[in-house]
Write a protein that binds this DNA or RNA. Structure first.
Lengths: 262, 262
DNA sequence: ACTATTTATTACCCGTGGGTAATATACGGG
DNA sequence: CCCGTATATTACCCACGGGTAATAAATAGT
């Protein structure tokens, strides 16, 4: 493995350091994965730090090596979800198409995100459990997400792909329906997250689309089926995990991966 | 006022009794009104029974004259909301019309309900805070509500007023959007509950309606504008309160108004 | 006016759970 | 081989809040 001779003085202080930091970050993320799952299944207030620790085979105070407190764990969970949704928006905005096209793309990605743990954390966690500082961050971010929906609708009206309507209320209607997915969807159910996402994208946008997409019965193919994103690794353990956030590209791991500041 | 002479012996043992029970029930409902408002603005776990009591100018143990515990208060709040939504469904089912008509009526009533405190309690309270017994009641009731939406959609497909679609997912989409109103609507905002309800009813149903309701821009008049229902008296104190539940007719005050069992 | 019942208060208990201090163990570097 | 650092554990603190017991104040009925 490490059979390099003299360059050890230039690299050895770095490689060990890096690998140690990596190990630390992996543990940190393991805490978050466990925490978000527990917070979702038990509720933030019923889930104790002892529960989280126990599930990780450690004890409560060990958690304080990685986080300052329970509310910070909550915030970090939310924060991962936020980065994921931000990636959705960035991707969608980058791609071309009419306002309606963008709205549909975002709807599909957002819906799928809502079927994952980190996506659910965006809509099921209570802002009031956060510190005032973090709460403001979340509120601002939420407004930005709302803005994306509204902007797509507005630009759709402008370019003629969307029928005239109040962008604000239309965005509320669509986003609300999507957010609610985070409340009822369970990975074990009849529907796959993917199927729900496509169905919702059609159902929600055809109400305001100028050219109706009516074909045969329900769905058949949406525009460019986004093959198997598998975002958010919702405690599935099905092997194909991880690369989601790595492939999210550049934007990911920006401000997170701090920690260590005791 | 009470200048009736001998009939006092036939009425006096009844009127005082009734008036005493009425006074008790009014206090009970006052507790619930305060509790639901507090639970919504602070969140169930942050709102303490001391807070509730303080706002009523009493002390915590006094609450235990009317309720067995905090979770029962939560359940009773939820229960009032449930009766209100049940009334909506009963009314809608009683009235005629196509499946689409019924779906629209229910959507409007349900949306408006979601702008009130008791309506919000249906979607913002966490089932897991209830006792196992009450939790089952709520779950059953929720399924019934969902069923109403699905049935209207299904019957709409059958009678040709609704385009073919999966009733289950369509119901989820519509109900989800409506439920989300309970999360963002604030009585002080730009929109009135009524306006939101009508807008949503159009927006949500036109996506699956066979005959599109496109007129001019957005709304103008829905079918039979349900004048000023003012359901749920959300801590408004604007004089015209109360008769909502009284006018709900027969169904109301069925099982509630028990209490007293210490 | 006297008594019984209802309703409210004061004072208290105690389980829970977030957070911390003191301390032990693993580990990399010189 | 020893030292410093990072990481984990045990044992503890204590604020908070739901719930209760003892008791006082109001009210109805006779």
């Amino acid at each position: 493995m490490d059979a390099r001779y003299p360059l050890s003085n230039t690299e050895s202080p770095w490689l060990p350091f890096e690998s140690r930091r990596r190990a630390r970050d992996e543990k940190r993320e393991a805490v978050l994965r466990t925490a978000v799952a527990l917070f979702l299944e038990q509720g933030y207030h019923r889930a104790t730090l002892n529960d989280v620790a126990k599930r990780l085979h450690i004890t409560k105070p060990a958690l304080y090596n990685y986080f300052r407190g329970k509310d910070e764990i909550l915030f970090e969970c939310w924060s991962i979800g936020h980065e994921l949704v931000d990636d959705c928006i960035a991707e969608t905005s980058a791609g071309g198409g009419s306002g309606l096209d963008k709205l549909r793309k975002l709807t599909i990605r957002y819906a799928e995100l809502m079927t994952t743990d980190y996506g659910k954390s965006l809509v099921r966690f209570d802002l009031r459990d956060l510190s005032e500082h973090n709460r403001k961050i979340v509120q601002t971010a939420k407004r930005r997400i709302d803005r994306a929906f509204r902007d797509y609708i507005a630009s759709g009206i402008a370019d003629g792909s969307v029928r005239p309507c109040d962008p604000k209320l239309a965005a509320f209607a669509i986003a609300g329906s999507l957010n609610w997915i985070g409340h009822w969807f369970q990975p074990g159910g009849e529907q796959t997250g993917h199927a729900v996402a496509e169905e919702f994208a059609i159902r929600l946008t055809e109400g305001i689309a100028k050219t109706t997409t009516q074909m045969a019965s329900t769905r058949k193919k949406a525009d460019k089926p986004p093959r198997k994103r598998n975002v958010g690794n919702a405690s599935r353990e099905d092997g194909s995990e991880h690369h989601t956030r790595a492939a999210a590209g550049a934007a990911g791991q920006s401000k997170r991966a701090r920690g260590r500041l005791r």
